[in-house]
Computed example of a mutant assay.
Amino acid sequence: MPILSKATKGAILSAPHLKTETVDVPEWGDGVAVIVSEMSGLARDAYYAKHKADDKDVPISAVQADLLLVTVVDESGTQVLDESDIEALRAQGSAALDRVADAAMRINGMKPGAVEGAAKNSGAATSGASGSDSLPVSGSQ
Rank of each mutant, 00 (worst) to 15 (best):
M1R: 05
M1K: 03
I3C: 03
I3V: 14
L4Y: 09
L4S: 06
S5F: 01
S5P: 00
K6T: 10
K6S: 11
A7R: 05
T8Y: 06
T8I: 02
K9F: 11
A11M: 10
A11G: 13
S14H: 10
H17L: 13
T20Q: 13
T20V: 12
T20S: 10
E21N: 09
E21M: 14
V25R: 01
P26N: 11
P26L: 12
W28N: 00
V32Q: 15
A33S: 15
V34I: 11
V36G: 04
V36H: 05
E38Y: 05
E38F: 07
M39T: 05
M39W: 10
G41S: 08
G41Y: 03
L42S: 14
L42H: 13
A43D: 15
R44L: 13
R44S: 13
D45E: 13
D45C: 00
A46F: 12
A46E: 14
A49P: 03
A49W: 02
A49Q: 10
H51K: 04
H51Q: 09
K52H: 10
D55M: 08
P59Q: 05
S61F: 08
A62T: 08
V63D: 05
D66F: 06
L68V: 10
L68H: 12
L68T: 07
L69M: 12
V70I: 12
T71V: 06
V72I: 15
V73M: 06
V73H: 09
D74R: 09
D74V: 12
D74Q: 07
S76F: 09
G77K: 07
Q79V: 12
Q79R: 15
L81C: 07
L81N: 06
S84M: 01
D85L: 02
D85R: 03
D85M: 03
I86R: 14
L89H: 03
L89M: 03
L89V: 01
R90P: 00
Q92G: 06
G93L: 02
S94M: 13
A96I: 00
R99M: 12
V100Q: 05
V100F: 02
V100G: 04
A101C: 07
D102F: 15
R106S: 07
I107F: 01
I107R: 04
N108G: 09
G109A: 06
G109L: 05
K111G: 13
G113K: 13
G113E: 04
A114K: 00
A114G: 02
V115L: 15
V115T: 15
E116F: 07
G117K: 14
A118Y: 01
A119C: 11
K120A: 07
K120D: 01
N121R: 12
N121G: 15
A124C: 03
A124S: 15
A124F: 13
A124W: 14
A125P: 00
T126H: 08
S127C: 01
S127R: 14
G128F: 05
G128M: 08
D133V: 11
D133H: 14
S134W: 09
L135Y: 03
S138C: 04
S140A: 12
Q141A: 05
Q141S: 07
